[in-house]
Amino acid sequence: MVGRDEAEQVTSPYSTGGGGTVLEHRFGAVLLAHLLLSDPVSALGDDATPVAVRFQDSGFSPVDDLIVVGDTADGAQRRLWIGVRRAPRFTTSDDSTADLLVSYVRVVTDHWDQVRAGRWRLALAVVSPNPAVQQVRELAVIAQGHPSDESFRAAVKQAGRTNEAVRTRLFYLDALIAQAASSQKVTTAEPASELTWRVLHVLRLWGLRLEGVDESDRTAVAGRLRNVVPSFSVAGADALFEVLERLSRRFAPAGASVTESMLRRQLSGTPIDRNPSYTAAWHVLDTLSTAETRVQQPGHHGGHCVPHVSPARLTCLIPTTSGDRSAACEPSSNRLQRIMVSGGRMCRGRRRSRLVAPGKFLAGHGLSCRPTDKQGCAP
Rank of each mutant, 00 (worst) to 15 (best):
D217K: 01
D373S: 10
R169S: 03
P298W: 07
S42M: 10
L101S: 02
G366D: 02
T21D: 15
H201Y: 06
A165L: 10
R313K: 03
S96D: 15
N275Y: 01
T290Q: 14
G212W: 13
L66I: 10
L122V: 00
D74R: 05
A363R: 07
T187S: 14
D99S: 11
R4I: 04
E242Q: 14
G299S: 03
S353W: 06
V69M: 09
A328K: 03
G18F: 06
V41R: 04
A73N: 07
G344R: 03
A73W: 07
N275P: 06
V22L: 13
T21G: 10
E292R: 15
I142F: 06
G19V: 04
N227Q: 15
A252S: 12
P358E: 11
I272R: 08
L244R: 02
D46H: 11
R265I: 01
A155V: 10
K374F: 03
P331Y: 00
L36I: 05
D217W: 00
H201K: 15
R354I: 03
A33S: 15
F361K: 13
R224F: 02
A125Y: 04
K374Q: 10
G302S: 05
G376P: 08
P88S: 04
D47M: 01
V108Q: 05
Q297H: 06
V10W: 08
G223I: 02
G255N: 07
G45D: 09
R167E: 04
V10C: 01
D74E: 10
S128W: 01
L124Y: 00
R294T: 10
L176P: 00
A159R: 13
D57E: 12
R274W: 00
R274S: 01
F90T: 02
R119I: 00
L170F: 03
C316W: 11
W206D: 12
P276H: 11
A175Y: 07
S58P: 00
E260V: 04
T315A: 07
L36C: 04
E164A: 15
D46E: 14
A48V: 06
L240K: 12
A178G: 14
D174F: 04
L225G: 06
L176E: 13
R86I: 00
R325N: 02
T219M: 08
Y14M: 09
A117C: 03
D65H: 10
A98Y: 07
T168F: 05
F171D: 15
A181K: 08
W206C: 01
P379G: 05
A363M: 03
R345K: 11
H308L: 11
A180C: 05
A220R: 15
V258D: 09
P191R: 13
V309H: 02
T372K: 11
L244A: 05
A291G: 01
T92V: 12
V69A: 09
F55H: 08
Q337L: 09
D65R: 13
S93Y: 05
D373C: 01
